[in-house]
Amino acid sequence: MKPPPWQNPWRVMLAVNVAVLIGVFWHKVLLPPWVPYIHLVVDYHFGFIKRALIGAIVSLVVDKVPVWLVFALAGTVWLITLGLFIRLFQRTFGFDEKTLPLFLFTAASPFFFKNFMHSLGHFDIYGCLAAIILLLAPARSIGFVLLAALLSIILILIHHIHLLMYVPTIGVIVVLRYYLSAGINRTNVAVGVIATLAIGALFIAAQFWGTMPIPAPQFIDYLKSRMADPSRTDLLSFAYIWYQPLSKEISDTWARMPSNILGVPVFALLIWLHTPLWRYYADTIRALREDLHRRLVVAALTGVTLGYLIMFAIVFDYSRWVSNWAVCMFLILHAVKMLPASRAVAPIPADDRKTTIFAAIVTLIPRVGIVRPF
Rank of each mutant, 00 (worst) to 15 (best):
P5C: 07
R11N: 07
G23S: 03
V24A: 11
V35E: 06
L40W: 05
V42P: 08
Y44E: 02
H45Q: 09
R51L: 08
G55R: 03
A56V: 00
V58N: 05
V67C: 09
W68I: 15
F71K: 01
V77H: 12
V77G: 12
L84V: 06
R87Q: 12
F95E: 09
K98C: 07
T99Y: 01
F105W: 04
T106C: 08
A108M: 10
P110C: 14
M117Q: 10
H118K: 13
L129H: 11
L135F: 06
I142P: 01
I142A: 12
A148C: 08
A149L: 03
L151E: 02
I161F: 13
L163G: 05
L163D: 06
V174N: 10
L176N: 11
Y179G: 13
S181C: 00
A182P: 00
A190D: 04
V193P: 02
A195R: 02
L197A: 13
I214C: 09
P215N: 15
Q218V: 10
S231Y: 03
I241K: 09
P245N: 12
E249N: 15
I250V: 15
W254K: 12
G263C: 07
V266D: 05
V266Y: 14
A268W: 07
H274E: 07
T275M: 12
P276R: 07
Y281A: 05
D283A: 08
T284M: 07
R286D: 02
L288C: 12
L288G: 11
R289K: 15
D291G: 00
L292Y: 12
T302C: 10
Y308G: 02
Y308R: 09
V315I: 14
V315H: 15
F316G: 01
V322M: 10
S323G: 07
A326M: 15
C328Y: 03
C328K: 04
R343L: 02
A350S: 15
R353H: 14
A359H: 04
T363Y: 01
I365D: 02
I370H: 07
